[in-house]
Design a protein around this nucleic acid. Sequence first.
DNA 1: TGACGAACCATATATTCCCATGATATTACT
DNA 2: AGTAATATCATGGGAATATATGGTTCGTCA
Lengths: 145, 145
Amino acid sequence: MSDFIGRYLNKVDKKGRVSVPASWRSSLISKEFSGIIAQSSLSEKSIDAYPREYLELLQNKLDSNDPLLEENEYESTVLFGGSVLPFDSEGRVILSNSLRAESYIEAEALFVGMGRRFRIWSPKTFDEYLARAKLYMDKRRKNKS
Amino acid sequence: MSDFIGRYLNKVDKKGRVSVPASWRSSLISKEFSGIIAQSSLSEKSIDAYPREYLELLQNKLDSNDPLLEENEYESTVLFGGSVLPFDSEGRVILSNSLRAESYIEAEALFVGMGRRFRIWSPKTFDEYLARAKLYMDKRRKNKS
DNA sequence: TGACGAACCATATATTCCCATGATATTACT
DNA sequence: AGTAATATCATGGGAATATATGGTTCGTCA
């Protein structure tokens, strides 16, 4: 079930193209669509990414709700209103200018697995995040007893 | 399943024409009708849009209710009273003056997927909406435990 | 006959595909 | 084990194609 594991650093070329880690691709390929769904992360300066199947699951959940309720509209917009990034023939995707700008990604993109989904970071921003995460984990470890 | 995913920014020419994202068109083409059903959103300053099939779904839902109830009458009028916007030969639709005025759309139209339907926004108005939506989603994320 | 809308045509732009190269890892062989 | 042969993957550039966009013409209806 955990499709996206590990950390991969790839280059972004001047067209904005970047290779998606080869070992992840099989989880991102289906008959209907091959590629990733991406959007600026709500909580971090990074790109949230997931397979399209993930959205089908959400769709099922949303179908049983009232589509005209405001909260369901918010959800639909945020989840489905991201970017669709199809693979090119060598398994790359194009990160649009806005996606790159909002995540501070320039020449290098760091793919970080999160199980069912993954994130794409600028290496530097990720380092800062990691430092914060470690601090949090440390505090948590000491409080617990 | 989820036909309308992603976000596309297209230009509106002086005749009010705008291209519908090519990847969405196949979901909007059928033998009976090719184009979109659109109307000013009830809740937001945007245009609600969907394929004609979407109306069949709603029809089924309404059929299970009492047609003589006042609220069902309202619903039918609003949902089925939208504008019919057929494609021209290159996959564009014409946004009427009133549709544009009510959604503050001028030179640019932003198509935002919502799964089974989509909305057309002025970019600026959408930014404001997205901020609100993110706030809601963030609150929701934190409440969950 | 003039305004309007619909179809048609032309071009610019963006996207996708295709091929070439280099790097790295893996396997095979002596 | 050491070295050669092979395969996989990342990367880069250019050509071909699809799409978006803008303009013009034609017909219709008021």
